[in-house]
């Protein structure tokens, strides 16, 4: 196992940040921690990167115990905190060689690992890190986390606050790194990114809701989902919430995701109900369940 946690708990004073968390990440796996803000994702990262000592439970990273062998872990993992935490007043190149030096290596030694990413920011290598765009900063931070050729890479919400194009690029980079044999633990609040992971753990309020491949999690979804659209979104949700057979309703882009309590559900019946409620342009169709639906269902 590259990463394994068993029964990890951590509280800050009275607040229980994570409770009794256990999961394993296989070598070379791209594993996602999916959950809303405050779910306990960062706490798990801080425990695994030896910045926090858990109250209970044990964990191993790259075969080392997080408490007893913390020194070995520090030289064999790469960590990219959620907040951009490089020196804003140093240039791209200076930041990179700084981290290379404190890991006792050089940029040249592991250049092949970061080459794909570094070539994209190389034109700006004499620019101060603080003056880079959000996507560039993420790439630089990833380079700095990779410069010592880590066995395990920890990425805490790497794409939060990054534009959609850069996000996509970033995930492509992760896939390439995975092929080079690096185990990656990534957290994200974006459900669409969850589908890109090999396996995911859905986490809320410091507890794990489910761990499986994204496909399996979606397939476990028990209901049929309908995309419902109408001229007035707000009124649509209100009307659906008043509907007697409602199971769940969530806004989803330009539609709402609706599930019904009954096994036999007639689209026409719901349509006439909504028409009676005064809505027009009503559009109802069967939709594919996704991870967000699964998460909402599990979090109920």
């Amino acid at each position: 196992m590259s990463i394994s946690l068993s029964n990890i708990s951590k509280s800050y004073k009275k607040v229980k940040a994570v409770q009794d968390i256990s999961f394993d990440v296989n070598p070379g796996e791209l594993f996602g921690l999916i959950g809303p803000d405050g779910a306990g994702k960062t706490t798990i990262f801080r425990i695994l990167t030896t910045l926090l000592i858990p109250d209970e439970g044990t964990a191993k990273v790259a075969g080392f115990d997080i408490v007893a062998d913390y020194k070995a872990i520090r030289s064999s993992v790469g960590y990219m905190p959620g907040r951009f935490s490089l020196y804003q007043d140093l240039t791209v190149e200076e930041n990179l060689s700084f981290f290379a030096t404190i890991f006792g290596t050089t940029i040249e030694e592991n250049y092949d690992l970061i080459e794909d990413i570094y070539v994209q920011i190389a034109p700006f290598k004499n620019r101060r890190a603080g003056k880079l765009s959000g996507g560039m900063k993420q790439k630089l931070a990833l380079c700095c986390a990779l410069i010592h050729k880590p066995k395990v890479l920890f990425l805490d919400e790497p794409t939060t606050g990054v534009d959609p194009v850069s996000r996509k690029e970033f995930w492509e980079m992760l896939k390439r790194l995975q092929k080079k044999g690096i185990t990656i633990l990534v957290s994200t609040p974006y459900m669409d990114e969850a589908a890109l992971c090999d396996r995911i753990a859905l986490i809320q309020n410091g507890a794990i809701l489910d761990i499986d491949t994204p496909k399996a999690i979606v397939s476990k979804f028990p209901k049929t989902i309908y995309n419902v659209g109408a001229n007035n979104m707000y009124k649509l949700i209100q009307s659906l919430q008043d509907y007697e057979h409602l199971y769940s309703v969530f806004p989803f882009g330009e539609f709402v995701h609706y599930t019904d309590q009954r096994e036999s559900f007639e689209i026409a019946e719901l349509k006439s109900y909504l028409e009676k409620a005064g809505l027009t342009d009503i559009h109802i169709e069967v939709a594919q369940a996704n991870i967000e639906d699964a998460f909402m269902e599990l979090a109920k």
Binding site: L51, R74, I102
Partner: peptide, 11 residues
Amino acid sequence: IGTLEQINVTP
């Protein structure tokens, strides 16, 4: 500025 957290996860 958060750099200490990054530094602390180094050998």
